[in-house]
């Protein structure tokens, strides 16, 4: 049992790391369908972590929580979001507001911050996987960063869902999960949130023909073309020898 639990604890650390990895995947990915896939994968990792904690600590209600996550976050919400993307033809590029390397650096700083904050708390904690707290906190912050660095409503919703995954992970790993009532409440909240988003987007599409949170995106910077009479870029001087 002891050997087994050591392996189990290491596995929880590993899975938390994978969850953070997927959070970074969400941060850098431009395609909506890929974002949804990453979210579903992250939720799947969460399902495994929850079941593992449930098995190691013998808390039955965590199995229920895992099953709920599985149905809701791995299957239902991704399917709903997929349908939304397909129906509304949301799949176009140019989404991130801040440049990618800058976003990545911010993400890195947030991870350092989260680890630093979590270290003293983790030492106080008596829970089984205390190191996981820092990783879960980093996941939440990266999700937050994603939320503010995206311009489109649907990406922001996915970012919110990813943050919620981070909270769930922290709760599961550090305090063996929240009370069942709270968990159920959150689950229903999330589901209703996504449903409302869908309705909202459908109506927004009809009304404004734009799904940008901050109005239409700035026109893509493109080298201005001159007319055919002078087929030369204006910025460079040209001469015919």
């Amino acid at each position: 049992m002891n050997d087994l639990s050591t392996v189990g604890l290491q596995l929880i650390d590993l899975l938390a790391a994978v969850s953070l990895l997927l959070a970074f995947g969400l941060l850098i990915q431009r395609r909506l369908t890929a974002l949804i896939d990453f979210y579903a994968l992250q939720s799947l990792v969460l399902v495994i972590v929850t079941s593992l904690v449930g098995w190691l600590t013998g808390q039955r209600h965590l199995y229920l929580s895992a099953a709920l996550t599985m149905v809701l976050k791995v299957l239902l919400i991704p399917i709903l979001l997929y349908r939304l993307v397909r129906r509304l033809r949301l799949e176009t590029s140019h989404d991130t507001l801040v440049k990618l390397p800058a976003t990545l650096l911010l993400g890195l700083l947030l991870v350092i911050f989260a680890f630093d904050v979590a270290r003293p708390i983790a030492q106080l904690s008596t829970a089984i996987a205390s190191g996981t707290l820092g990783i879960a906190l980093a996941g939440i912050l990266v999700g937050f960063l994603m939320m503010i660095s995206r311009s489109r409503a649907i990406s922001q919703v996915i970012a919110f869902l990813a943050m919620e995954n981070g909270v769930f992970l922290a709760a599961t790993a550090v305090t063996h999960g929240m009370p069942m009532v709270v968990e159920l409440g959150i689950a229903v909240d999330v589901l209703i949130g996504v449903l409302i988003l869908g309705v909202f987007l459908f109506h927004l599409q009809d009304a404004a023909d734009s799904l940008e949170a901050g109005g239409p995106a700035s026109p893509t910077a493109r080298l201005e073309r001159s007319g055919p009479e002078t087929p030369k870029p204006r910025k460079a001087r040209t001469q015919t020898p």
Binding site: K232, P233, K235, A236, R237, T238, Q239, T240, P241
Partner: peptide
């Protein structure tokens, strides 16, 4: 062939 040349820094 006399190609049209573009001059400028770094071109």
């Amino acid at each position: 062939y006399p190609f049209v040349r573009v001059s400028g820094a770094g071109v």
